[in-house]
Design a protein around this nucleic acid. Sequence first.
DNA 1: TCAAAGCAAGTGTGATCACATATCAAAAAT
DNA 2: ATTTTTGATATGTGATCACACTTGCTTTGA
Lengths: 242, 242
Amino acid sequence: MQKAAIERNNEVIAAQLAPVGRETVQDRVYSELRRALIGGLFEPSQVLTIRGLADALVTSTMPVREALGRLITEKALEALPNRSVRVPPITLERIDDLLRARILIEGEAISLAASRMGPRQIATVEGLLREWDEIRALKHKKDVDREVTLNQSFHFEIYRACGSAVLIPMIESLWLQSGPCIRVAIYAFSEAGEVDTARYHRTMVSALASGDAQAAREALVADISRPFTFLRSKLQSAKEQT
Amino acid sequence: MQKAAIERNNEVIAAQLAPVGRETVQDRVYSELRRALIGGLFEPSQVLTIRGLADALVTSTMPVREALGRLITEKALEALPNRSVRVPPITLERIDDLLRARILIEGEAISLAASRMGPRQIATVEGLLREWDEIRALKHKKDVDREVTLNQSFHFEIYRACGSAVLIPMIESLWLQSGPCIRVAIYAFSEAGEVDTARYHRTMVSALASGDAQAAREALVADISRPFTFLRSKLQSAKEQT
DNA sequence: TCAAAGCAAGTGTGATCACATATCAAAAAT
DNA sequence: ATTTTTGATATGTGATCACACTTGCTTTGA
């Protein structure tokens, strides 16, 4: 009986081959729409149609409608009584509501992460910070998309360390809801704003490295508050003009 | 021109007729599954099939698969790599994780509600409390479903007063995730447990009536912690036996 | 000239079909 | 007797169709 030999051969094969994964079309559509939403590629109040998205993503309507349904339950999109779906419009109340929730939950997450991040994770986020500096150094073209992605990686690398399978999906939902809002703030941000962001991020990392949960939380609150307060004042003045 | 007369006639009709509403089949399926999950009608680790649910709910597969997808994104259900879906199993870590998140978010919600609930809302929750007492008074049959519904109404009547369109869906998601867990605790609860629940609820109401956010939060934490710690010790001992 | 009716294109929803994969028990091979 | 193979059934996924409703423009009527 060559059972042992076969077993050994299978193990060798398993070591060489990476799992191919079986992502469905629906999952890819969902991920793509998430990416677009968080990146602020859709404008607030923009309406989305199933067939339109299906054409744009080169699939049929079926995966799109299922992805839209999922995004609607996450409040990342909004179902109108007309049965059409749009990205939620910005209001003053919504901005304050979102910021409060983000401070509450992301603050808790980073506070938990402070006592759980090892040198390994600290090094990773420091690497992301360095990568960011490099991009800002050669500032010929405004690679906003790259910065958004990097910012997202930075934050979620920290949140992932909090070890909560419940909090992280909630934070993802909050980012999904905030995405269309803060994009307009990002575009309007001057060089000064980005310098601030980098400083807050560095403060967060050093606080995390020393296990100072309170300092990390405060730096995070300052970081995520800034685009919201900026957007708030902008909306406020726009409202007064009318 | 009888335009004014027509207008008046239309208003009369509008006053007599109630909006008929256009709830889709998918929405009804979703609501029904939510109710079942929060009520703990499904057991942890139970697998659900699209066609099975479609038969049980007397519809086709289409609305069911969409409802399942939405519940999966809310983490109320879990998609296995086999592409089958089940209600998430209970683990010690998950219990602690859920309780921490619920204390954080529902605590914030009730704290906000404390300064926003008027006499009108206070009266409503007091009415729910009285209704509960009546049910407990004629305790011939264990109407657990009714108590679960009443408990849910009580809490969400308060949460709704917090005025946050962001926090409330998150709390709903947390209840969806907790439902299958706490059902086993509810069944095991003795009469003593229910008396405690009623006491905590009364404490909450009087704290809310006097606008004492801190006291309301503490009573809430005690209320929602109890089934979790009960379940925790039960799971702990079951684990030690093996 | 302007409001109301009518028409046509577009859109979401649900049903059904086809296909690939998963599951499990019976049969075959060792 | 145990393991492997095989075959039948069940299940999720995506495509397509039919239907109802919405929307915006054109046409009709006052």
